[in-house]
Write a protein that binds this DNA or RNA. Structure first.
Length: 417
DNA sequence: TGACGTCAAGATCCG
DNA sequence: CGGATCTTGACGTCA
């Protein structure tokens, strides 16, 4: 059982992908972007290894225009060294990666040109996983596509087009229920005919349930039968509804108590759980730390990343977390995350924000130049008199943290949450 | 024709 | 000039 996150790592240095617009794209620029993105991917993989995260979705942005203008470029050979080094790190760590072409990759379209592009896109995604030298347990997740007014015909067309895919693509492809069209029962229908493993998505199922109402666990049990030898562990997607956004929108963070209810309902089934959530790796670590004892040291390291972000919201909870972590023989993960989640529900007030910013400034007090000191004082004054935002103040602190390479701050969540 | 989702690039505004 | 804050891009379907 592994818990993981998708595509982007929050507060991980050097992990940002780069891209360009189609009109600016040329071979030279694309090659430099790919080089950068592979280095960004490696940073994320390194971060995952260090932090014990064993499930990760690689962003489709790795190769900009990978299924169109870069499709025929020899990036696979040009960067074979980088690919195999990263692939080795993934393999050695026992990490499982995946890719997920988005909602615009429509294999069952009634438009042949769209289908051809979808096939090229799937080729591209498989080529990345192949280049990393990873076996077919490292999957690509796809939705069935559009309904075009007739779902059962749409499913038939999906299967017909699936059968045209290369074996190397077919063997990696798994299918997922979506939030508007194809519910889990529809996806299983396609799965049974074409023998494709099914990823059960919990939020999509809640938002777009099948007619024959089965429980979440029932669907997960049925989906389990679609994962065959060589496919690796069954995978599910788990996310929570963002209460202030429209139906199906992912939450900012995973509320661990709701997650634990879901997790315990699985009653020990060996399933990989991909979280889909805005705060990405932060929620993944939270869930990992809550389902089993990772040692007090892991909680301390995580607390070190949270602390100024919590201080900014609630000095009271900041103190309480410090206190509960003093007992080195305990593992107070649930209490700590309860307090953290409570703090994030507290709106930021000016007094606390200023207090936290001053704590952060403390790292530079003695090394900052006169000019930097003045600038900080000026931004602080302006924030206090409502002439400038907290974001400006924090962005400035981040710039200074980068200049002096203050790793402790740069690896923390203060600048990001 | 716009909304949907995503996230960085690109454009524009401001001091 | 540099930073902050919008707007656009690239994809396909559906109302």
């Amino acid at each position: 059982m592994s818990i993981g996150y998708a595509c982007v790592a929050v507060a991980v240095n050097g992990s940002e992908m780069k891209s360009c617009t189609l009109k600016n794209a040329n071979e030279e620029l694309l090659l430099s972007l790919i080089k950068h993105n592979l280095s960004a991917l490696e940073s994320v993989i390194d971060y995952n290894v260090v932090n014990g995260i064993k499930l990760f979705r690689i962003s489709s942005d790795l190769i900009p225009f990978g299924s169109s203008i870069a499709a025929d470029m020899p990036w696979h050979e040009s960067f074979s060294g980088e690919f195999s080094r990263i692939g080795q790190k993934i393999f050695k760590a026992g990490m499982r990666v995946s890719m997920h072409p988005g909602q615009y990759t429509v294999l069952n379209s009634i438009n042949i040109a769209v289908v051809e592009r979808a096939i090229k896109d799937l080729d591209y995604h498989a080529k990345v996983l192949d280049a990393l030298g990873l076996d077919v347990e490292h999957k690509m997740v796809l939705h069935l596509g559009g309904a075009y007014g007739n779902k059962s015909l749409a499913i038939k067309r999906f299967i017909a087009h699936y059968l045209q895919l290369k074996p190397a693509v077919q063997s990696r492809l798994v299918i997922e229920n979506d939030d508007t069209m194809f519910n889990i029962n529809d996806v299983l229908e396609a799965s049974v005919i074409a023998d494709i493993p099914v990823v059960f998505d919990s939020l999509h199922n809640a938002v777009n349930p099948a007619d024959n109402a089965a429980s979440e666990l029932d669907w997960i049990k049925i989906c389990a039968t679609t994962w065959k030898m060589g496919d690796g562990l069954q995978k599910v997607h788990y996310s929570q509804q963002n209460p202030s956004k429209k139906t199906g929108a992912h939450s900012e963070t995973i509320e661990f108590e709701k997650f634990l209810e879901f997790y315990h309902r699985l009653s020990g089934r060996d399933i990989d759980i991909m979280l889909e959530v805005k705060d990405k790796n932060i929620s993944a670590l939270k869930c990992i730390n809550c389902v089993s004892n990772q040692g007090i040291g892991t909680l301390e390291r995580e607390w070190a990343r949270y602390k100024y972000s919590i201080l900014e919201r609630s000095p009271a909870e900041y103190e309480r977390i410090r206190t509960i972590l003093t007992d080195k023989n305990s593992y107070p993960a649930l209490v700590m995350y309860r307090l953290i989640e409570d703090a994030y529900r507290t709106p930021i007030n000016k007094g606390n924000a200023v207090n936290a910013a001053q704590h952060v400034w403390g790292y530079f007090k003695n090394k900052a130049t006169k000019f930097e000191k003045n600038r900080f004082d000026q931004l602080m004054k302006k924030y206090l008199s409502d002439d400038s935002s907290l974001t400006s103040l924090k962005n400035y602190l981040r710039r200074i943290a980068r200049k002096y390479n203050e790793r402790y701050l740069l690896n923390g969540y203060y600048f990001y949450l």
